[in-house]
Write a protein that binds this DNA or RNA. Structure first.
Lengths: 234, 234
DNA sequence: TGGCCTTGTGGTCACGTCAACCTGAAGGGG
DNA sequence: CCCCTTCAGGTTGACGTGACCACAAGGCCA
């Protein structure tokens, strides 16, 4: 009555929405970007799609997401978390088989250079300017992932994952502003972050800056009794 | 590079954690219950497990959860939502095949009599007294589902799904108390619920009660711009 | 060199939310 | 008919938050 014999003509895939921060080429403002891969096969040949692939026998789900990430961007996720399982019967209308996709989302560090392994078929795009329509229902998935990132950033200290080990509060604030897409009051932001105890003062200051040099902080050790199924990597 | 040929020896299943409210047999207090089914096959033969089954070709994921619900409890879900996809390679150590389970959780109405279809192999249990260890990693899944229900009830008006069309605020409060497992101040609860506008006054009062008769409310029409992938049923 | 400009840091104030608590209303039961 | 219980509504103080203000601390430029 619970889980039994295999089913034909069904594919189980793992895809990942990978977020990074870069300055927007027009405005120069820090914005959210994500990598897409161009499909070289039917269905949806030549359309852009989320990086991913079929789940291998020996891989855990998160491991599969990590593998696909490295294959497309050469990057390690600083935060990796399952988003949703998409499996409607009609989600790939022209495909020969039904595809059930378990989708993850990931954050990578701003300072790690995101060199695409296959420069021709992999490209980064600002999240508000994805070259749609994407393959399958990936437009929907991207929207959903952005919503989830925005929601989560407001109640969980995941934004640190975009930054290097040490950072100024203004840098962290600009991360929040890029994710939430609105300006935040520097003073109030400072108070909130410090009161929640997710960062700690290193005692040092940033050097070589114009104007007053800001203090440097690092993210505080997590209390580690997190949700059961969230995965992170160092 | 995205989703391609099938994989052998892998099973895609859909399971559901079904929540209902009943008085606890010992204390008489309203508590959370869920139905489990006894496995009649290996692996984990004779252990209790979540209701579910293999995903059929023609079924959407939520549809599969709904079908399994009706088969085991004869009930319609008043709220149905995807929980998580569990797919670790070692999660069913003695099973001949790897099982990836997409798990849903559901709420059913307190007043609809939960008649098990197969009384011998299906039984309801208080969530804190499940006859463990369960099959597969279902103990973990149950804990995770309870956490998610508790979290969601604090920021979303889903508790109404446990109640009939019209109800008193004290009944709604007792639902919250059962889910959160702590007492709530009646006065403050009243203010919070009314201020968030998720219930509306019917103008009538409950009759035949001892003491002062309470007003009857119904759940207000939802603003319907909810999360993209949450499913509910009428 | 000294004023100016920009950004970082710290504080105040008004407002809204919430937990704890108090008071009266409205019925049934002894 | 009084008492008990539950419903209904209000008060108070602690706390978090947004809007706003003032000073600190460096580089830049006349």
């Amino acid at each position: 009555m619970t889980e039994d014999p295999p089913v034909q003509h069904m594919v189980l895939a793992v895809s990942t929405v990978i977020f990074s921060l870069r300055p927007h080429p027009d405005t120069g403002e820090l914005t959210l970007w994500l990598p897409l891969v161009r499909r070289i096969r039917e269905p949806f040949k030549n359309r852009w799609a989320l990086p991913g692939g079929p789940l291998q026998d020996s891989q855990d789900l998160g491991e599969a997401a990590r593998t696909a990430m490295r294959r497309t961007t050469g990057l390690q996720p600083r935060h990796l978390e399952q988003l949703y399982a998409f499996g409607d019967v009609d989600r790939s209308p022209d495909a020969p088989e039904r595809v059930v996709s378990i989708v993850y989302w990931a954050l990578v560090r701003q300072d790690e250079d995101a060199h695409a392994v296959d420069a021709e078929n992999v490209a980064w795009h600002p999240v508000d300017e994805v070259p749609g329509p994407l393959a399958f229902d990936h437009d929907l998935i991207v929207r959903y992932a952005v919503d989830r990132l925005r929601a989560k950033v407001t109640y969980s200290p995941i934004a640190h994952a975009f930054l290097p080990a040490e950072f100024a509060l203004a840098e962290l604030r600009r991360v929040y502003e890029a994710v939430l897409n609105r300006a935040l009051d520097p003073s109030n932001f400072r108070r909130q972050i410090l009161s929640q105890g997710t960062v700690e003062d290193t005692g040092r200051r940033m050097t070589g800056t114009a104007h007053r040099p800001p203090r440097l902080y690092r993210s505080a050790p997590q209390s580690s009794r997190y949700s059961l199924t969230i995965e992170e990597s160092p």
